[in-house]
Every structure is written in C-alpha cells, then in structure tokens.
Amino acid sequence: MSRRLTLYTRLGCCLCEEMKEVVRRVAGKLALEMEEIDVDSEPELAERHGNEVPVLFIDGRKAFKVRVTIRELERKLLG
C-alpha cells in the first residue's frame, strides 16, 4: 500500500532540498505518494509551520521537521 507524504517547504530553503533528496531516495525503494506544499502560499500555513520547514507529514500526521535521514524515514515508513 502506498504511503502518502506531504512535504511543507519554501522557496530557497536548503533544508527542504535536503529532505526532498532523502524522500526521493526512499521513494526509489518504497511506494510513496508525495505532495509538496509551499508554506508561504497561505498565511495560515506560514503561521503554523513557517518556522520549522521543512515539515514532513506521513498519511496526514506530522512525522519530521527540519531534518530527516534516509534511515529514519525508512524506519518510520516501515514501522
């Protein structure tokens, strides 16, 4: 069953690029549906997540913020 990942990012965010790369690598091994949302697109999102981007939600639940390693993400997805 495919897991649904939502990644809140913002333009020019280097940590977002790091996390996206991690997700990309994991996506090569596991079935993932990935959605990327710019937190600055809505004031409410910016207020909620603006200071901790990137934020990764797995199936609608907040799983990681700022950083994640491949191993941590795999463990979370498989666990």
Binding site: R10, C13, C14, C16, G50, N51, V53
Partner: peptide
Amino acid sequence: VSGLMAGAP
C-alpha cells in the same frame, strides 16, 4: 528569538 535566514530556521 527565532527566524528564518534565507528560508532556513
């Protein structure tokens, strides 16, 4: 005090 520098916390 926290903020974003070039988009980074």
